[in-house]
Each structure stands twice: as C-alpha cells, then as structure tokens.
Design a binder for these strands. Structure first.
Length: 211
DNA sequence: AATCTGATCGTCT
DNA sequence: GACGATCAGATTA
C-alpha cells in the first residue's frame, strides 16, 4: 500500500469516513474489474481511538474470531457475514490495535457495469447495483474469503477522492440498535443528491408482538 | 410509498 | 437459544 494511502487511513474513523466519500474501490478478478465510487459510509470507532469505545461497533466487546482483522493494521477489508446470507465490507482504519473501521454502505458503479449487473440480477436500476452494504459487496463479488484482504492495488485497489469532505451530510447510523444508534453517534456520512444512497431506516427495532 | 414478512446461519451468551 | 451494521418480494392503500 502506498505511504500516503496508509497515512490517510491511519486516522480516527470519524475523520476517515467523510473523506472516503468519492473514493473509488476496484475489485479485479478473472471475470473482469468492477469499480464503485463510494457515496455512503459509516464510522465504527474502536478502543484505542477514544476514551469511550463505540457501543455500536462489532469490536465493542473486545477481540473475537469474527472481528479479528479490525484489530490489525489499516488498509484491509473487514468482511462479515450477517442475517444468514449477506456479506458487508469495512475498510479497517486507525492504528493497529484500535479496532476501527468504516462500513461501505453504498456507491455508484463507475466501471464494469455489465459485470455488476450480472452479479445483481435483482437490481431494477443501475443506482440499485451498489445501494446498501450487502448489495455493494455483491456487486464487487466480496465474500467470506475477502476478509482481511489488502487494499494494496492487487485484487483490491482504493483510490482516494480528488476533493475531500465537500458538502458531506451526516446522521445516525442505519440498523444500529441501542445507544450506538442514537443521534449521539451521527457517524453515517453520505453525498447529497446521490441516487445510490440507501434509504434511511430508523434504528429503533420494531416492537415485537406480545405473547 | 409505506409497511410487513420470509429467508437463513454465524456468532456470542 | 436469540439476534443480527440486510434484502427482495408481496401486500396494503
């Protein structure tokens, strides 16, 4: 990984996340290359970046087999499996040992659109190809085996945006239950007016039927 | 357009 | 054993 990219990702995730907007993530395989321009991300702060760890983070309760790579060096993918069927991808950031990351929630496919379409047959419009974290992962063919993969320009390349942080909006994170989902953690960042930004859903869980 | 439900299994208690 | 950093399709209106 280039030194400037490493230094860029070495900071607190709440600073890195808005800067990731407009960055381009490319995955290359024998099938071809697909590139996504990031339009929506969320910051998940780990333990060494702050006095108070982030209750919404997968690393909040300490090191486990699943969150292991979050504790490693920045510039790698943390890929997790959820709901029994979906993968989602984070960019690990902050210094090694800090367990921070930025969840890649949405993006615009800017290269390899036909390949992305073939991977996402359910998408009705091109804006839906990488709209949502699991959809973005699917468009880029990110799966279990990509957990820990380096963003070093090999299979995965991350290209920082030319203009950082301009006109970025922020708000509460999507689907995070408990205090981490409250307005006290406005760590979801997105670009205004982008059709690929996923619809907001309240963090409050639906009341379950009474027995 | 908003709301609901089923799918489906790894992870941690 | 309960619950996900979710998605797609159906249903309601």
């Amino acid at each position: 990984m280039p030194d400037d990219l490493a230094a860029w990702l070495l900071r607190d995730p709440v600073l890195v996340a808005p800067d990731l907007l407009g960055a381009v993530l490319t995955h290359t395989s024998p099938e071809g290359a697909v590139s996504v321009r990031l339009t929506e991300v969320e910051a998940y702060r780990g333990h060494r970046d702050s006095e108070h760890p982030d209750p919404g983070s997968h690393s909040y309760n300490g090191r486990t087999p699943r969150n292991e790579v979050m504790w490693g060096p920045p510039g790698h993918l943390y890929v997790y499996f959820t709901y029994g069927m979906h993968f989602c991808a984070n960019v690990v950031c902050g210094p090694a040992g800090s367990s921070s990351g930025c969840l890649l929630r949405a993006g615009e496919v800017v290269e390899g659109i036909d390949l992305a379409r073939s991977r996402r047959p359910a998408a009705k419009r091109d804006a839906d190809l990488a709209r949502g974290p699991a959809r973005l992962a699917q468009a880029l063919a990110i799966g279990r085996g990509d957990n820990g993969a380096a963003l070093d320009g090999g299979r995965f390349r991350l290209e920082p945006p030319s203009h950082r942080g301009a006109g970025v909006l922020s708000g509460p994170r999507v689907g995070v239950a408990g205090p981490g989902g409250s307005a006290d953690y406005p760590w979801r960042f997105w670009l205004p007016g982008e059709p690929s930004v996923s619809a907001y859903r309240p963090a409050k869980p639906r009341p379950r039927p009474q027995a």
